[in-house]
């Protein structure tokens, strides 16, 4: 399952769980699912674009629930730490740049095996 705030990803993968939240919100939703037994399939820090630069984030997790996967939990917690510590400088993007960010995020999540 893909948890995303990227409308392009939601359009391409109708089974994904879309929420119009920020990246922090996506990371929190992923962390909650890991606590319920999901595993990370994609790394939450996909790409060299820093998580505070792009407003879009898609993360793939397993739909199969098992015991708590500590490695997945550690990775998402570390990603949240990275997001918190990066600069809090604000970016103002126009629609064409937002579209570019959506395409990069979509391309990264396309690399995840079903």
């Amino acid at each position: 399952m893909i948890i995303t705030n990227n409308p392009d990803v939601a359009a391409m993968y109708p089974d994904s769980r879309y929420s119009a939240c920020n990246v922090q919100g996506i990371f929190e939703a992923v962390r909650d699912e890991i606590h319920k037994g999901a595993r990370l399939l994609s790394h939450p820090l996909s790409g060299s674009i820093k998580p505070n630069e792009s407003p879009y984030k898609s993360v793939a997790i397993s739909a199969k629930y098992a015991n708590l996967d500590f490695r997945s939990l550690q990775i998402i917690e570390d990603a949240m730490t990275v997001l918190r510590r990066l600069t809090d400088k604000k970016y103002i993007y126009d629609e064409s740049i937002l579209a570019d960010f959506r395409i990069i995020d979509l391309d990264h999540i396309k690399g995840v095996s079903p």
């Binding site: 399939l41 994609s42 790394h43 690399g111 995840v112 095996s113």
Partner: peptide, 8 residues
């Protein structure tokens, strides 16, 4: 350096 944890 791929996206998925399985690839990694």
């Amino acid at each position: 350096e791929n996206v998925t944890l399985q690839d990694k």
